[in-house]
């Protein structure tokens, strides 16, 4: 009985000290921003945690990367299933990870391990308009916005540097840093980003450029 009471008190203490950052990301027109990555870096240093065990995937569907932005913890393996009935050739020349998956269909047997924090830009050498991003986070406290909002749950009480990143943001991720003290309950943080236009090679047809592209 005493053991159970001690265990229960420890659990309750843990719950009491685990809190949430509720983030809202808007653009220059006050529209909610999807695919923004919100990260929280503990001021006392990033805890050493293993990569998440879930199977991270970036699909290729209808000649697009799905999702457009994927956030993973540093050290995570990521699979790149090709759901189209044609072949893709996925590559990245980013400093955080340089790799190439030569022309393939189906799912490559081995995942790509993202072992350095940073932003990895994905492309397909067959379909130039295909563009995707993997944000490799140095902290386990991160999430990607859907319709401008996201919650970082189960944060230990303490002080964090919260930042946001988006592929089309003006300025640097570091420039978005905010000091956030997390207590019990939810702490709301709001960012307003200035987004640039998406100027990737155009997929829609242009006169005089017919035929397979």
């Amino acid at each position: 009985m005493i053991v159970w009471l001690v265990a229960l008190s420890l659990v309750l203490a843990g719950v009491a000290e685990a809190s949430t950052i509720s983030a809202l990301v808007r653009d220059q027109r006050n529209e909610p921003v999807a695919d923004a990555v919100v990260v929280a870096l503990p001021r006392g240093g990033v805890p050493s945690v293993p990569a998440r065990t879930g199977r991270e995937t970036v699909d290729q569907v209808d000649k697009e990367f799905i999702p457009y932005v994927t956030a993973v913890l540093v050290g995570s393996p990521v699979y790149f299933p090709n759901r189209d009935n044609i072949r893709h050739h996925v590559y990245s020349f980013s400093a955080a990870k340089t790799f190439e998956l030569p022309l393939y269909s189906g799912t490559p047997a081995k995942p790509i391990v993202f072992d350095r924090p940073g932003v990895v830009t994905l492309g397909c050498n067959i379909h130039d308009w295909m563009l995707g991003y993997i944000y490799v986070a140095p902290t386990p406290y991160f999430a990607t916005t859907r319709q401008g909002r996201v919650k970082l749950d189960d944060l230990p009480v303490g002080t964090y540097t919260a930042r946001v990143w988006h592929p089309r943001m003006e300025g640097s991720e570091e420039g978005t840093a905010k000091a956030v003290t997390v207590g019990n309950g939810a702490t709301e943080v709001v960012w307003q980003l200035t987004l640039k236009e998406d100027l990737r090679p155009r997929r829609a047809p242009v006169p005089g450029q017919r035929g397979y592209r």
Binding site: W129, R202, R203, A204, P205, V206, P207
Partner: peptide, 16 residues
């Protein structure tokens, strides 16, 4: 001289 306006990812409106 022409201009092409994308209508989604698979169509466009064009004048030249």
């Amino acid at each position: 001289f022409g201009m092409s306006i994308a209508l989604g990812s698979q169509a466009s409106l064009n004048v030249a």
